[in-house]
C-alpha cells in the first residue's frame, strides 16, 4: 500500500498543499511588518547619502521632517498623480528614458523647509549578475556629489558586493562632479584599484576583481543622471 503509485501521488499532493498553505499564511501574516522594514530601510538609505544616521535615531520622524518626496517625468515636470512609493524602479529602468517615472527626494534645510540643501536621486541598473540600485545625493549646485549609497541583488560577495558593503568605496564618490561645463558626463569608476583620482572630478578608483560590476555602476549612473538632466537643469535655473 505504502509503495503504490497512487499512494505516492496522493501523498505528494497533500504534502504540497499543506506546505503551500502554511507558507502562504505565514507570508500574508508577516507582510505588513516586512514592508514596513523595507520602507524604513529605504528611508535610512536616502538619509544616509546626506547625513550620518546614528544608531537608535528615529528615522521615520527625521525623514518626515527633512525629506520632500515627489515624482517627476523626463521633462522635469512634477507628476502629482503618482507617489514615489508606487514607482517600481525595477520596471521603470527597462523603459526608454523619456517614458520613465523618476522619483526625487529633496532634503530640505533644518530651519527653512523651503530651502533645498540636497536632492537625492534614485538610480537603477544591472550589475554583473543581477539588478543594482542606489541613491545619489547632489549638493544644491546640482553638480557636486554629496554622497552615494548602492545596493545590489546578487553581486559576488567580497568583490562586486563591495558596492554595498564597503563604505569607503561609496565615499570615493563624494565631492565628484557630474557636469563638465554644461555637459553631463557623470562619474566613472575606473578599472584597477589603488590609483589616485583625487584631482579628476569625474573618475573614482575602481574595484579590484569586479570590473564588470563597476561597469554596471557606471552605466547605471550615466543612464539615470541623463534621465534626470532636465529636472536638474530646471532646478539649477530656479535657484
Amino acid at each position: 500500500m505504502r509503495q503504490s503509485n497512487s499512494y505516492i501521488v496522493i501523498y505528494a499532493a497533500v504534502l504540497t498543499i499543506v506546505c503551500g498553505g502554511l507558507l502562504a499564511m505565514a507570508a500574508e501574516g508577516l507582510k505588513e511588518k516586512q514592508q514596513f522594514n523595507v520602507a524604513l530601510e529605504q528611508k535610512k538609505n536616502i538619509l544616509s547619502t546626506v547625513i550620518n544616521i546614528e544608531e537608535g535615531q528615529d528615522v521615520n520622524r527625521l525623514y518626515e521632517q527633512r525629506v520632500k518626496q515627489f515624482v517627476v517625468d523626463f521633462n522635469g515636470d512634477v507628476r502629482s498623480d503618482v507617489k514615489p512609493q508606487d514607482v517600481n524602479l525595477s520596471v521603470e529602468y527597462k523603459k526608454p528614458a523619456k517614458d520613465r517615472l523618476l522619483p526625487v527626494y529633496e532634503f530640505v534645510n533644518e530651519s527653512d523647509s523651503s530651502k533645498v540643501d540636497n536632492v537625492v536621486l534614485p538610480v537603477y541598473g544591472y550589475g554583473l549578475w543581477n539588478d543594482i540600485w542606489g541613491f545619489v545625493a547632489l549638493e544644491s549646485d546640482m553638480n557636486t556629489i554629496k554622497g552615494v549609497k548602492f545596493d545590489h541583488k546578487g553581486e559576488t560577495p567580497g568583490l562586486g558586493a563591495r558596492i554595498e558593503s564597503d563604505p569607503e568605496l561609496q565615499a570615493r564618490y563624494q565631492g565628484k562632479s557630474i557636469y563638465e561645463g554644461d555637459k553631463l558626463v557623470s562619474v566613472t569608476m575606473m578599472k584597477g584599484e589603488g590609483n589616485d583620482y583625487s584631482d579628476d572630478k569625474h573618475k573614482v578608483d575602481g574595484m579590484s576583481g569586479a570590473t564588470l560590476t563597476a561597469k554596471g555602476v557606471n552605466n547605471m549612473l550615466s543612464d539615470y543622471l541623463q534621465s534626470y538632466e532636465r529636472y536638474l537643469k530646471k532646478k539649477k535655473t530656479n535657484s
Binding site: 504534502l15 504540497t16 506546505c19 502554511l22 507558507l23 505565514a26 507570508a27 508577516l30 511588518k33 516586512q34 522594514n37 523595507v38 524604513l40 530601510e41
Partner: peptide
C-alpha cells in the same frame, strides 16, 4: 526536502519581519 524548505522559509520570513538588518 519539502519539510525542511517549509521550516527554512518560515524562519526566513520571520527574520525578515523582525530582524531585517
Amino acid at each position: 526536502l519539502a519539510v525542511v524548505s517549509l521550516w527554512v522559509t518560515l524562519v526566513n520570513e520571520l527574520l525578515k519581519a523582525y530582524v531585517y538588518d
